[in-house]
Design a protein around this nucleic acid. Sequence first.
DNA 1: GCTTGGAATCGAACCACATTAAATA
DNA 2: AGTATTTAATGTGGTTCGATTCCAA
Length: 412
Amino acid sequence: MGYMCDFCGEQRSIVYCRSDAASLCLSCDRNVHSANALSRRHSRTLVCERCNLQPAFVRCIEEKISLCPNCDWLGHGGSNTGSTHKRQAVSCYSGCPSAAELSTIWPFFLDFPLVGDSKCEQIMGSMSINEVSRDSQGAQGKKNIQDASVAVGVTNIQNVDKSTAWTGSSMLPYDTKLQNIELPAASTCAGSPKLSCFGAKGQTVCEDDSFYENFNMDEVDLSIENYDELFGAALDNPEKLFENDDIDGLFGMEISGADSNCQDAHLMEGSSMGRINGIQPACSTAASADSMMSCKTEPNICFARQAHSSLSFSGLTGESSAGDYQDCGASSLLLMGEPPWCPPCPESSNLASSRSNAVMRYKEKKKTRKFEKKVRYASRKARADVRRRVKGRFVKAGDAYDYDPMTPTRSY
DNA sequence: GCTTGGAATCGAACCACATTAAATA
DNA sequence: AGTATTTAATGTGGTTCGATTCCAA
């Protein structure tokens, strides 16, 4: 990977598709992601203009550059002057938005050198969403409209409250700073500033006020029963994704304020999809299988650092074993302390102690937590529940047994 | 700081057989 | 094409046991 489009290798890469793990130029992005309904769902964002490897999650207004969390940290996290730069959250989009629509999502979009003079512009500018939808007729076309409307509806930057632009170190943008991040207005729930949500499904989440009315990090766990839940009903009922208790247990953060709910609920949503590389702070809604699977292939330790003790990561089974955390790449760092690039800071000792306390609390809770097994066939369970056993093993009917679930007596 | 041994924890394996799905007549 | 029969695979829970981790000496 590098500066060039992974697909055509000719144009400079502009956007990053996590699902495809590819950096694409605008024309290829459109071509690739207009192929079918599934690909249209891919959530894309700008590619980091510094490393050209990771998706960007903020744009430095001062430097006019989009940055991934790592590069953002490197550029703004220290004590240099960059730490005062104003930055703006970079939203994701899906569907096949036109250049104009992308510029609506990203007001800085026209800053890109390729926009306006390349064939990308020709393609992007000449095609409207309606045209795309007309090209692919019927329901497919309607889907395109939906996708595109999502892309546009996600972000109406013109409504952004400029006063919320944030500056300062990116060390803890999610933890303590995100509430001040300049987020697209439309990405927040209508009528409720509590939860930032991005994309269509996120909006669905937001519409359910009950979801975050009782949203207390202390009660949150990332429990995903199975893929069906994850990709199906759970998305319609987000509460199913959060079942009990680990977040504060692991990191010792207890957040009760509405603003905190907002920022962390957003993070939670991302992490609940197993998306550790939460450098997609603005695209938590894709909830697609591919994005979830990217968890293991694209560990992003930066996010772990930035999440800074505010997240836990759960495995697909809902059992948060240590291995699960390790699987997610970033997680191990959360448990092991500061990442190697973390500079010494006066808070470090406090952070270390609070983290160790948090880990202890997490372990305690984990001990007492009950994991419910999902029984696929009740009939089989019913039979197993009445079968006689010897040392836990099933025995042939009529044979001697040492355990009878019906009558806990021995036959010999 | 390093080693050692016991305790604690974890996860896979085992068992029989009704049920389910697939293949065949 | 639809039905009946046969074959193979699956899943269910309590217990055991080997492997791993933890912790104090």
